[in-house]
Nucleic acid binder design. Structure first.
Length: 846
RNA sequence: GGGCGUUUAGCUCAGUUGGUUAGAGCAUCUGCCUUACAAGCAGAGGGUCAUAGGUUCGAGUCCUAUAACGCCCACCA
């Protein structure tokens, strides 16, 4: 037998295991197998960068599910892949080229895409290495990319079909414009953050009069695009002005005063300037009143010639200052009222988003969302979120969502399958026949392709072999921040295109924060590289920590100390295994036919732990499952059973029990810590498979539940604990004598307490005595030491606690309401407990 | 403005359909180099479960209100 190192060394343990599993093909699904499928598609990480702690958490949870289900006998299939991440990757590549002095537009589309592919391959390789380090069981034979040939075809098909059905349309609407990336964004890609700003009160003079309306705005620079001012039709203050014109400052152009519901009498001055081309509300107002849309900005958000020569070319910020100066000098600026409000920024470039009127492609959301709202009412057809409260997050989104802007003015992505020739539009899988057709320059939102991930990766729409077996997927795991972007969209696309939910369960986790509860961010410099942790403590320790630290769906505060604790735990298992392995060498088979009470006891505890932890595993409550296994392993198996086993280590029953229970522990822990469990499993003298990964998860069996032995040994343990307690509390030296009152064989107790045979006596000695007792075992400890003040206080406090508890229980049991209404089992328990407590008290008072 | 969540030991977190004296890890204190493990073993201390009401024989758990913190959504000029 290979000698185990004295300390657990993850670096050695984790070597070569991944390749072993991979080369054996354990990660691969088997579509022809008769086993039930269990399929998870990996949320494809962006090829923009490397994996962070959040990814490590995400993949750990999935790997636990996959490994557990595989051992439970499922045909597991975990499909890996990556996301081209259109705007995010494009931004990175643009920057890389810029650093080399290359401009994207001068470089040209074709060469730029080549640079994007280079980037993708570089980062893809890093990500795959990181997956291997985490030990995750991905079926690489089915790996996909959101921009690969199959996905691209699926994307085109969906686009074409939706277009033909009227679910995709092209329209000129106001959208969120990123002036740095120079592309449209969806609502989800806009992040709102608080900014200090001001309400600027500006005089809009009435035509031919010195009278004016006080117009409050946060964006004075947009006044060049004003085509009206609006008041509420019920606003008595302004009724007389409706229909008249006011003079737009600086441009000195008359614009009408109109009434519109958008003008709120309570807000500001009740007068609002209307800029249809640069504000979403005003856009709507403009539509209602047929107002002209004047675009006043270029695509990079500098001002254009519509603002007049002086302002053209200025940035938004410069223009604001200049406008304010001019207003002041013309005595048109009434007041500046400080204000803090939410301003939208681009998720990727961070720049302030500019509402712009642009012609873009949209998905008509209402019918798609309504289908989901309908299916979510049916428990057999809905996506089951864990925790269930996230169902509300999705439903709410489905209720309020509106048309999804899917075109992006980028190059890296799925090019829109639309061709134009003069006024003609052609939408199809391939370019149309004939001369003069020009394809749309734009690409699709990256989420358009990832929304198809759960089925397009399985070969949809061309091949249905995998789809038939693995769709709907059994589970999806992701963070709650991704629900609007991805989970919701996969759900409506799955329902629409395949008529079924994309996955049965959706396990949601939170975000990882730093120790102070702050988000990890580059600017704070508080980032943690998960692979530094792997290097220091091993992937198994990191995984165990990530999987068990918090309940599902909640945020986690990163704490390196806990990874250390996980290492300690693994070290404990390592050493227990070392003990077991060194003592069961040569064991030919596990024979549990003639068992001693303590063997029956640990087997019972094991079965109960198995039963409980499996219930938790099935509910994705890995924190609870982990705690249950931890308690059994450390507090029962290591602390007591191994200690007991030392005294009967030569017997077959002890060897068999040790081997049986250790195997069970390794199997229960394998999903959490695959490397170390495999290492130890390989050294077992008796094992069922060539790898723990393909071995069967233990099956709960009543055969190994021994109630009476469990109670008896529990009682011995309780006795041992009280004995040690009294010993410690009294600072007892080794010079003591014990008299057992019971006739039973107290051999194990005597051994665990390390009581020398010479110290056991048959009759009371005339020196100070302590009573020790559990339910069945009683003993008296004698030792020469005068009762100290501390002893007396301890004894008194024990008596007090007992008396209080007895009083409480007596009151409870004399309460008719309680006795009649509470379940009989509970009442009975209180009665038994009361009797026991009374007995104990009696003993103490003796 | 709408919605959701959190508040339990010094710290980080569990706590199932309401039911024994509310648990764990870390930290703290005491004693141990006991031949699997000193990154260990044995023992101990530490909580009016955010606050105020209510329902109930019984509330950390259910209901109502309040407070603090956090997140998501929303077109607040």
């Amino acid at each position: 037998m290979k000698e185990l190192e004295k300390k657990y060394n993850p670096e050695i343990v984790e070597q070569n295991k991944y390749d072993f599993w991979l080369n054996k093909g354990y990660f691969n699904c088997d579509v022809n197998s008769k086993k039930e499928p269990f399929c998870i598609v990996l949320p494809p990480p962006n090829v923009t960068g490397v994996l962070h702690l959040g990814h490590a958490w995400d993949v750990t949870l999935q790997d636990i599910i996959i490994r557990y289900k595989k051992m439970e006998g499922y045909d597991t299939f975990w499909l890996p892949g990556m996301d081209h991440a259109a705007i995010a990757t494009e931004a990175k590549v643009v920057k890389r080229l810029k650093d080399q002095g290359i401009n994207k537009y001068e470089y040209g589309r074709e060469k730029f895409l080549e640079a994007c592919w280079d980037w993708t391959h570089e980062h893809g390789d890093i990500i795959r290495q990181q997956w291997a380090k985490m030990g995750i069981a991905l079926d690489y034979t089915k790996e996909r990319f959101t921009l690969d040939e199959g996905l691209s075809k699926a994307v085109r098909k969906v686009f074409v079909d939706y277009y033909n059905e009227g679910l995709i349309y092209r329209g000129e609407k106001i959208i969120n414009w990123d002036p740095v990336a120079q592309t449209a964004l969806s609502n989800e890609e806009v992040i709102y953050s608080e900014e200090k700003s001001a309400f600027y009160h500006i005089k809009y003079k009435l035509e031919g009069s010195e009278e004016y309306l006080d117009v409050a705005t946060t964006r004075p620079e947009t006044l060049f695009g004003d085509t009206a001012v609006a008041v509420n039709e019920n606003d008595e203050r302004y009724k007389k002005y409706v229909g008249k014109n006011v003079i737009l400052p600086i441009l000195n152009k008359p614009i009408p005063v109109i009434t519109d519901e958008h003008a709120d009498m309570e807000k500001g001055t009740g007068v609002v300037k209307i800029t249809p081309a640069h504000d979403p509300n005003d856009f709507e107002v403009g539509n209602r009143h047929n107002l002209e849309r004047i675009c006043i900005m270029n695509d990079d958000a500098t001002m254009n010639e519509n603002c007049g020569k002086k302002y053209a070319g200025m940035t938004r910020e410069e223009c604001r200052e200049a406008v304010l100066e001019d207003l002041k000098s013309q005595d048109l600026l009434i007041d500046i009222e400080p204000l803090v409000h939410e301003v939208g920024h681009s998720e990727r470039t961070g720049v302030m988003v500019e509402p712009m009127v642009k012609r873009q492609w949209f998905v008509k959301m209402r019918p798609l969302a309504d289908t989901v709202l309908e299916t979510q009412k049916d428990k057999d057809r809905k996506v089951n979120f864990v925790p269930s409260r996230y169902e509300k997050t999705m439903n709410h989104w489905m209720e309020i969502t509106y048309d999804w802007c899917i075109s992006r003015q980028l190059w890296w992505g799925h090019r829109i399958p639309a061709w134009y020739r003069n006024d003609e539009v052609y939408v199809g899988m391939d370019a149309p026949e004939g001369e003069g057709w020009v394809q749309d320059e734009d690409v699709l939102d990256t989420w358009f392709s990832s929304a198809l991930w759960p089925f397009a990766t399985l070969g949809w729409p061309d091949s249905d072999e995998l789809v038939k077996k693995y769709y709907p997927n059994q589970c999806l795991v992701t963070g709650y921040d991704i629900i609007p972007f991805w989970v919701n969209r996969m759900t409506f696309q799955g329902e629409k295109l395949l008529g079924a939910r994309p996955f049965e369960d959706c396990l949601i986790h939170g975000l990882i924060r730093d120790k102070q509860g702050r988000k990890f961010s580059k600017s704070l410099g508080n980032g943690i590289d998960p692979f530094d942790m792997v290097k220091e403590y091993g992937a198994d320790a990191l995984r165990y920590y990530l999987a068990t630290d918090v309940a599902p769906g909640t945020d986690m505060r990163f704490d390196e100390e806990k990874i250390k604790s996980a290492w300690n735990y693994i070290n404990k298992i390592w050493n227990a295994s070392r003990f077991v392995l060194s003592n069961i060498d040569g064991l030919k088979e596990i024979n549990l036919d003639s068992l001693k009470p303590e063997d029956k006891w640990i087997l019972t505890k094991f079965e109960k732990c198995l039963h409980e932890s499996k219930r938790f595993m099935d509910k994705y409550e890995f924190n609870n499952a982990g705690a249950s296994i931890y308690e059994f392993t450390w507090n029962y198996f290591c602390d007591y059973y191994i200690e007991m086993a030392k005294y009967s280590i030569d017997t077959d029953s002890t060897k068999s029990t040790l081997c049986y229970v250790l195997t069970g522990i390794l199997k229960m822990l394998h999903p959490f810590m695959p490397f170390v469990t495999e290492e130890i499993y390989q050294m077992l003298p008796v094992k069922d498979e060539e790898s723990i990964m393909i071995s069967a998860y233990p099956k709960y069996s009543k055969k190994y539940i021994f109630e009476s032995e469990e109670v008896a040994v529990d009682d011995s343990v309780e006795f041992i604990k009280s004995f040690r307690n009294i010993k410690a509390e009294n600072n007892m030296t080794k010079e003591f004598k014990v008299m057992f009152d019971t006739e039973d064989d107290n051999d194990i107790i005597v051994k665990l307490l390390k009581i020398d045979k010479d110290h056991i006596v048959n009759k009371p000695l005339g020196i100070k005595a302590y009573k020790v007792f559990s339910n069945r075992i009683k003993a008296t400890i004698f030792f020469e030491k005068v009762e100290s003040e501390a002893d007396r206080i301890l004894k008194e406090s024990q008596i007090k606690i007992l008396q209080a508890s007895i009083a409480r229980r007596e009151a409870l049991l004399s309460n008719e309401n309680y006795v009649n209404k509470a379940p009989a089992k509970i009442v009975e328990m209180d009665r038994t407990k009361l009797e026991e407590e009374k007995k104990k008290l009696e003993e103490l008072l003796k």
